[in-house]
């Protein structure tokens, strides 16, 4: 057994333990933290499995954004414990059947790491052998994401947009505008404020690096957007939401969120206008590879824009909610 496989199994066993604790726990905050730990551990598993982009994203999103949002929401909800009586019978039966089926199904999967597995024989070799040449992007994940399966990524962008739209719709008109400690955090410690003041520019710089370095290493518009948003959230946490809103009014955020989608879709339409298929970047420049490069750059920018602005919008929407209480 290879060391890597052993590590994977250990991490998985650890996650299972965490899940068991999660299932037993009534404390919602603990549940959120345990889920965050599972997510973080999965990021480690992804790294071991050579999926660096995924690991990066899972750490940023699963462990980061999801935990942040959950904690924020828990604060707003004013709920601490899940005291209700759990059902046991039907869930147990369903889990038994599904689990049994999955064990049956995975029993004759190709062994872990088998280079002869069917998934390794078809389609994937093309990406690995030709991806770098056809798109001029060495990070094959980026090449597949933005070009070969660029339409999926457009869809993914729309999903994020839909979520943002949904949160805005659902929480429309129910926010508070009055001064609250969370909303107006102007009384933070001076040291914290100074540190954050210095830190935020670096976070944003890092985000830009991730945005434009995605062609060559792990990263891309999605991760960059999340990190950029994290920088803004950090700023808002320290200096208060109103300060952030002065820099980035909500109307501008909404425009940016829409612009990201339009940029991505617009690149597709531009390809159509130049006689290619939707998202066929090759027609964007004289040279096909140059065109690919340009297209990938632009759509990644679109992704970054929308992800960033939707994340900040969602954070803002939750932060502005009154805490607890019933209508």
């Amino acid at each position: 057994m290879s060391v890597e496989y052993g590590l994977t199994l250990t991490l998985l066993a650890f996650m299972l333990l965490a899940a068991w604790a999660l299932a037993r726990s009534d404390d919602l905050l603990a549940a959120v933290m345990l889920a965050g730990i599972i997510s973080l551990a999965s990021a480690a598993v992804f790294t071991v499995m050579d999926a660096v982009d995924v690991a990066f994203t899972e750490a940023a999103v699963g462990a980061g954004v999801a935990t942040l949002l959950s904690v924020r929401a828990l604060g707003v909800l004013g709920e601490r414990r899940a005291a209700g009586r759990a059902r046991v019978g039907l869930p147990f039966l369903v889990v038994l059947v599904c689990g049994g089926l999955l064990l049956y199904g995975t029993a004759d999967l190709p062994a872990y790491g088998d280079p002869a597995a069917p998934a390794m024989q078809h389609v994937a070799p093309h990406y690995l052998a030709r991806g770098g040449v056809e798109t001029g992007v060495p990070n094959i994940v980026t090449a597949v994401l933005a070009s070969y399966r660029g339409f999926d990524t457009f869809g993914e962008l729309v999903v994020i947009f839909t979520a943002g739209l949904g949160v805005l719709t659902l929480l429309a008109g129910s926010g508070v505008s009055g001064a609250r400690s969370e909303v107006d955090a102007g009384d933070r410690d001076i040291i914290v404020r100074q540190v954050v003041k210095w830190l935020v520019p670096f976070v944003l710089l890092f985000a830009l690096y991730v945005q434009f370095h995605g062609d060559y290493g792990p990263g891309g518009g999605f991760q960059a957007g999340v990190i950029f948003a994290a920088g803004m959230v950090l700023y808002a946490l320290t200096f208060g939401l109103p300060r952030l809103e002065r820099v980035l009014p909500p109307s501008r955020l909404r425009l940016l969120a829409a612009t990201g989608v339009w940029l991505y879709g617009g690149v597709g339409v531009a390809c159509l206008l130049r006689g290619g298929a939707f998202l066929d970047y090759a027609v964007l420049a004289e040279d096909a590879v140059d065109g690919q490069h340009l297209g990938i750059l632009l759509v990644e920018l679109g992704v970054g824009l929308t992800v960033f602005s939707v994340m900040v919008l969602i954070y803002r929407a939750f932060t502005r909610q009154r805490h607890g209480g019933v209508e």
Binding site: A51, A73, A119, V123, V144, V159, G164, G166
Partner: peptide, 28 residues
């Protein structure tokens, strides 16, 4: 390693957080 699952899961992670955000808003 095979890049295709990575791409798919990147998308799926995004879908997951999107669903979660929406669900949290509903809970509020």
């Amino acid at each position: 390693s095979n890049p295709l699952p990575h791409v798919l899961i990147l998308t799926a992670i995004v879908v997951g957080i999107a669903t979660m955000a929406l669900a949290l808003a509903l809970l509020v």
